[in-house]
């Protein structure tokens, strides 16, 4: 068994914690991955840590049959987040995105919206810590997305659900997470379920979704690290007007290579791209690679 000198292990844990803080911007739109990773981090937590984060995401998806009813959605979002570890066990966080969406239908008609999205509140709890230097931790997380975004309308008509900056409903997510650090490696994983408890704007009901997120990271140095993530989602069909949306739900697995660069003692920059690797989505759906850029600063 490989042995690690105590002072080296402590230093490695600290660096890994710093780099790990932004290693998984994952999916700020909750499409895949764990959207809380940027704001709350994936490292072994400690009491009193305050974090502010800014995450940018750019993505596109296409739904429907080409030449018939195809619609393309392009989305950019800038999400501001913050978190605070009340103790070694409890953390609270919040995220607020500013969303820009562009929906083009089969007739080339384009709708654009730009607005603040839904506010999300997160609570993370550490169930267990293990290992020298507390190199592993396991816990629960509860997130609640609030219907804070205003309903986008034009000339008195509610716009399509896909182009709404928010969803117009309360959306709870419960997750089990685990993190492990052994310099230069670290690993974060989470399994979450988002419940379809209510109807959103215009009576649209989103299907419940399971998400599995695994993020690995290898530190090239104390300032630079490479990461590779696997983000899977299995979701049910959406429902509208009493019928299932056949072009919704299904399974998708995305691989997310990325790069992390430390900019200062407490500031980290993260760049990654989610690439669809395995899809079994219902109907006619496809997702383009999603680009993500994140910046965090700890206090």
């Amino acid at each position: 068994m490989k042995t690690v000198r105590p002072e080296r292990a402590v230093a490695a844990t600290a660096v890994a914690a710093l780099l790990g803080s932004t290693k998984a911007l994952a999916c700020a739109t909750c499409l895949c991955g764990d959207p809380t990773l940027t704001s709350m981090g994936s490292e072994i937590p400690f009491a009193g840590r305050k974090r502010i984060s800014l995450a940018y995401l750019r993505r596109a998806e296409t739904v429907g049959s080409a030449g018939i009813n195809q619609r393309e959605l392009k989305e950019q979002r800038l999400e501001l987040g913050g978190s605070y570890w009340l103790s070694d066990k409890w953390a609270l966080g919040a995220r607020l995105p500013f969303v820009e969406k562009e929906l083009t239908d089969q007739s080339l008609r384009t709708l654009r919206t730009r607005a603040a999205g839904d506010l999300s509140l997160d609570a993370r709890y550490v169930l267990q810590r293990d290992g020298f230097g507390r190199s592993t931790a396991t816990g629960l997380q509860l997130s609640l997305r609030l219907p804070t975004a205003s309903e986008a309308q034009r000339d008195g008509e509610v716009l399509d659900t896909d182009v709404q900056p928010g969803r117009g409903l309360w959306l709870p997510t419960v997750a089990l997470w685990h993190t492990r650090t052994a310099y230069p490696w670290s690993l974060f994983s989470s399994l979450s379920y988002t419940a379809d408890v209510d109807e959103g704007f215009d009576g649209y009901r989103f299907g419940g979704a399971w998400r599995l997120n695994v993020q690995s990271q290898y530190a090239l140095s104390y300032a630079t690290a490479l990461q590779l993530g696997a983000n899977a989602r299995l979701s049910g069909k959406d429902r509208y007007d009493g019928t299932d949306d056949d072009n919704s739900g299904g399974f998708i697995l995305m691989l997310a290579p990325g790069l992390i660069q430390q900019l200062g003692t407490d500031t980290v920059l993260n760049l990654s791209v989610q690439i669809p690797a395995l899809t079994d989505l219902n109907g006619e759906q496809s997702e383009d690679p999603a680009w993500q850029l994140g910046l965090t600063h700890d206090f």
Binding site: L96, F98, T104, D105, S107, L108, R109, T110, L111, R112, T113, R114, A115, A116, L119, T148, A149, S150, E151, A152, Q153, R154, L159, Q164, P165
Partner: peptide
């Protein structure tokens, strides 16, 4: 941004 409503614009299609 959170305090303001959604900005909406359109481009006519076919």
């Amino acid at each position: 941004g959170a305090c303001s409503g959604a900005s909406v614009s359109t481009t006519d299609g076919v």
